[in-house]
Write a protein that binds this DNA or RNA. Structure first.
Lengths: 291, 291
DNA sequence: TATTTTATCTGACTTTAGTCAGTTAAGTTT
DNA sequence: AAACTTAACTGACTAAAGTCAGATAAAATA
């Protein structure tokens, strides 16, 4: 009986394979082999370098070459040479290619929407999907420098504030927290890092420059769907290495004892508890690390 | 930014497609095309009728015929004719075929196990997978007659008792509940139905024969991962139709007001509330329906 | 500058998957 | 028993995917 964990995963695999098979079938409905459709999709509205497509789809150079030509013959793409390096080529969608691309997008989106519409608890379904996608994609999580006012950064920060509000007995009001000047978390004074798991903002951390002889780590957050994957550690390590390259030798941070995982992490990463160094209302634990 | 529901589903699809692609690649590592591997897997240790394989994998008769022969030539399967209907053929694994089958199983199982091992909350991951598999497979949920002592039935019943224990303020002790003779839920006196979603027991209901001029509906349960898919209604409808074919005209059931979804369902399905008709300690609501 | 490496393309394949019309033999229906 | 239906097989295809050994031109390196 399929009660053991491995059987449950395999049942999941079967269900999902069937689903993707159906989608592939509907892709064929546009009169083009799947290989060509995949290349069109990989190029995307922004265009893409040919070598990049090859790496992404893991195709043989000859095969990709022919697929690109077939799309070109259909009038869906243009392939031009790279100005900097004339060996390289770059594929972009023509207006007609854009339309075709959107048609494929619509097929995928409609299917996703249909699944959503007929589920009684869409938010639960989406949370489950986020969790699984993060578990499967943990090796593909990338950490990127991001402006603190960019959409993914704002998403992370708002999730972070919402979580603090839920976990602090006294609640949390971002307006009451210490003012944070975004310029302090932009180069050259600091940096704001966002972790993207297959495009989903899944964590963040800010390195905030000060004029007091140290920099601060702020706003460390990891999405529930990505917890336990070692992402907090990666974010901290990246932030520290940014600090090092900026010539900072002392880092400080504050946190709250209502977030025991956080304090534990800082200790494991070699931070030392120090005395209160600011008068923010929310933190009650203070750490320092020399890098 | 991928914060909207459809983008989240598509991110999930990408992650899962990558994962299944990797598994397919590892299947190719055994030196056999995917088609043949799929047929071997579809045959399984118990063997399978050729027509059955064809329907399951949706293959052309000619194609399957050749795939079967290639497996036969490899010495992995035997195809024999059906005794009852000599047009039909039946495929079984040879000892060597069993070994090869197990090798494929091991590839899948190891991957599943690896995913589990490196996840911080395996039970949460599995629950997410169950939920998604049920959502995707809702059209494939089948309701089968099952002995009340069979493994899937026991799984459902134990989950049901655990849930009652959690939801009743006074707890729930199966030993204190009204004795249930399994024979009353076996033909010809009654029936026990289990809902299987891609093999996972996801719901149950019992029709219990009595000598009092009515039959009782007992143990209606739907797994959390399958709720909202209309499964409870399907189970009730099937149980009622079994009652009808058994010549029963009056059905009764008892439930508890701590399970408001249940009472609501019974009302929607045309049941009428009646006075207490037994002295079980747990129920406080009683219903009747004429069929 | 000569040599090596890299990115892409071309031609000539092979393998896999899939289609389809027709055949055979065994059941089913009339 | 004749006519029909069904399950599986065969032969003759096509399309799609993938492989591989050069060829070519543009960098990169020695």
């Amino acid at each position: 009986m399929p009660l053991n964990p491995v059987s449950r995963i395999r049942r999941f695999n079967r269900a999902v394979t069937t689903e993707t098979g159906v989608l592939d079938q509907s892709f064929l409905g546009r009169g083009r082999p799947l290989g060509a459709a995949r290349v069109l999709n990989a190029i995307g509205p922004a265009g893409r370098a040919v070598s990049d497509i090859r790496a992404f789809l893991d195709l043989d150079t000859g095969l990709l070459s022919r697929l690109l030509r077939s799309l070109e013959d259909e009038g869906l793409i243009d392939v031009t040479e790279d100005r900097k390096d004339k060996r390289r080529r770059f594929a972009v969608l023509t207006p007609e290619g854009h339309r075709e691309y959107e048609a494929y997008e619509a097929l995928s989106n409609d299917r996703a929407q249909a699944l959503l519409d007929r589920h009684p608890h869409p938010e639960q379904l989406l949370a489950a999907m986020d969790l699984i996608a993060s578990a499967l994609g943990r090796d593909r999580i990338e950490i990127v420098e991001s402006d603190p006012h960019s959409a993914p950064a704002i998403h992370c920060l708002e999730s972070y504030y919402a979580e603090l509000a839920a976990r602090f007995a006294m609640g949390f009001d971002p307006a009451k927290a210490a003012r944070l000047d975004s310029d302090d978390m932009r180069p050259p004074r600091g940096v704001f890092l966002v972790a993207l798991s297959d495009g989903l903002p899944s964590g963040c951390v800010g390195l905030k420059g000060t004029d007091k002889g140290y920099a601060e780590i702020k706003r460390l957050w990891v999405a529930p769907s990505a917890r336990g994957l070692g992402l907090a550690k990666r974010l901290m390590t990246e932030a520290e290495s940014h600090a090092r390259t900026m010539g900072v030798t002392t880092l400080r941070l504050d946190t709250n004892s209502a977030l025991p995982e956080a304090a534990g992490l800082y200790q494991r990463l070699g931070w030392n508890e120090i005395d209160r160094f600011n008068d923010d209302p929310y933190p009650d634990l203070f750490f320092e690390k020399r890098v």
